[in-house]
């Protein structure tokens, strides 16, 4: 029985080519469609159970792999760990199919605006134009079509890189504005924080070392050099405080992980009627 199953498995796993390949792929998609059809007809009362079971199995694999590292006495290997590369490849490929989820929403919104020539329709038009331009140029570049690497570079470095980095850098201006208008020392704690921040700001940059360069480099007084005070704050009080925060986070993360794994988590995703 076991041997015949192995034969069937080997036969199925054999690479196919030409017409046979097409038949097998269509067959696989047909079986998949049947499977999805069955899922579609599952009564509502069983749905939550199925989602919970799948979530549990997903978590169980990694938990067992760590908690019960079963070792095969004949091969000396850990079977659950051995299959990790295959699981990784499967997760990578399946995860990539989620790619168009967000894009579909964007297409719907901008498509509607463009069809109706609604307000600011040109923004929607440029969205589609740039979306398809960079994607097509990317594929053409990989095929080695003349001129496409340069055109791709104009879109990528000239626009995408520049637009994203400039958008990120806008925060610097808001920090400047906030430094002037919002950072008010209203309490002793706020003062404490601001003193620490000021020392760190100076200690991290070269000018900090220059400001107290008149102090000796060795001996007792050297401890008062700005860069030393700043570094001490980072590596001593800051380190201890961050570790305390990390311990708090650790317990919370473990609890959250357990709640998700066992489908005990509450919230819009978990509570919705299926």
């Amino acid at each position: 029985m076991g041997q015949s199953l192995h034969h069937i498995w080997t036969w199925l796993a054999m690479p196919r080519h030409g017409l046979a390949l097409a038949v097998f792929i269509i067959g696989a998609l047909g079986i998949g469609a049947l499977f999805l059809g069955i899922l579609c007809s599952v009564p509502a009362r069983f749905r939550k159970g199925i989602v919970m079971a799948v979530t549990f199995i997903g978590g169980l694999y990694l938990s067992l792999e760590f908690l019960v590292p079963y070792k095969n006495v004949h091969t000396g290997k850990y079977p659950l760990t051995e299959v990790m590369p295959t699981v990784a490849n499967l997760e990578i490929v399946i995860g990539c199919f989620a790619l168009l989820l967000g894009i579909w929403n964007l297409f719907q919104i901008h498509g509607k605006t463009l069809m109706k020539f609604g307000k600011d329709w040109y923004n929607s038009a440029i969205f589609f134009l740039t979306f398809f331009s960079i994607a097509i140029l990317g594929f053409l570049r990989d095929k080695g079509v003349h001129g496409t690497p340069e055109m791709f570079s104009i879109l990528f470095s000239g626009f995408l890189l520049s637009l994203q980095s400039t958008t990120f850098s806008l925060i610097a201006f808001y920090i400047v504005s906030a430094a002037y208008r919002a950072f008010r020392i209203r309490s002793a704690e706020a003062g404490f924080m601001m003193v620490a921040a000021t020392i760190i700001m100076l200690a991290l940059v070269p000018v900090g070392a220059l400001l107290t360069a008149w102090l000796p480099e060795t001996g007792f007084l050297s401890a008062f050099r700005l860069e030393r005070i700043g570094y001490w704050i980072l590596t001593s009080p800051n380190m201890a405080a961050q570790r305390a925060i990390a311990f708090g986070v650790a317990v919370g993360a473990l609890a959250t992980g357990l709640r998700i794994w066992l489908s005990l988590e509450r919230g819009s995703f978990f509570d919705r009627q299926l």
Partner: peptide, 23 residues
């Protein structure tokens, strides 16, 4: 960048000080 940062940090510290004096 490290020198530009030096200038920027001093400017921000000055802003915090002036902002608080104004406050």
């Amino acid at each position: 960048t490290s020198w530009a940062l030096s200038a920027a940090h001093i400017f921000i510290i000055l802003l915090i000080v002036v902002g608080n004096l104004g406050y």
